[in-house]
């Protein structure tokens, strides 16, 4: 038979994998949002400050390296140096830093898309840079940031599958374990693909709709 069969235990196992994927994604997105907000705001500073250059270097670096190898260095690399790291810790650190850079770019673009007139009107009232950001620019920029930020979330969900490469059991690695037990690769990989699709597709529709409304 082409498809093979899955037992209840197999389905449970895949379900647990799904939850672990979600946990990894939510942690990564949560930390990534914090990092991204900080670095994005620093990056958008019109004045050439040291913090701006650090933020720029951070974002520039992560836009040009493969996420999978960050997982590999973060776990296997560190272990090979004789340090003890948990898989979850290494994987979360890598995905958060990576997500933070992407969110940072979203935040920066959002801030920069608010017109110059808004800055000028604010500073001519005597408002400081920080107050202008807080009360005038960010409230307007957030709307612009949401659709691309959802795009980043989709990317994180898909990217989290790469954590399987360092042996972190999430959906894909759970799937590979089930394949070893059942010899039903088509069914298992198909199911896994569908699970990702069910998470990502509604998000991509949402992002598209929100973008159209802007």
């Amino acid at each position: 038979m082409v498809f093979g069969k899955l037992s209840i235990a197999d389905i449970n196992y895949l379900w647990r994998g799904t939850l672990l994927t979600l946990r990894l994604c939510l942690t990564g997105i949560g930390l990534g949002l914090i990092l991204g907000a900080i670095f994005g705001i620093l990056r958008a500073n019109p004045r050439k400050t040291l913090t701006k250059m650090i933020a720029a270097a951070y974002i520039e670096f992560f836009r040009a390296v493969p996420l999978m190898l960050l997982f590999v260095v973060g776990y296997f690399g560190i272990i090979s140096l004789g340090y003890n790291v948990s898989r979850f810790g290494a994987v979360v650190a890598a995905i958060s830093l990576y997500t933070g850079a992407y969110i940072g770019q979203v935040v920066r673009t959002g801030i920069e898309s608010v017109g110059r007139g808004q800055w000028e009107a604010s500073v001519s009232l005597g408002m400081s840079y920080v107050d202008t950001l807080r009360y005038v620019i960010l409230p307007q920029a957030v709307k612009i940031m949401i659709p691309p930020a959802i795009g980043v979330v989709i990317g994180v969900v898909k990217g989290s599958s790469l954590a399987s490469v360092v042996g972190y059991v999430e959906l894909v690695l759970a799937g590979r374990h089930v394949i070893q037990r059942t010899y039903a690769p088509l069914l298992v990989m198909g199911t896994i693909a569908m699970i990702y699709f069910v998470i990502c597709y509604p998000l991509s529709i949402l992002s598209k709709n929100l973008e159209r409304k802007l």
Partner: peptide
Amino acid sequence: FVFQHFNLFPH
């Protein structure tokens, strides 16, 4: 300061 394009805060 009053601007040519008003620059009111739309939000």
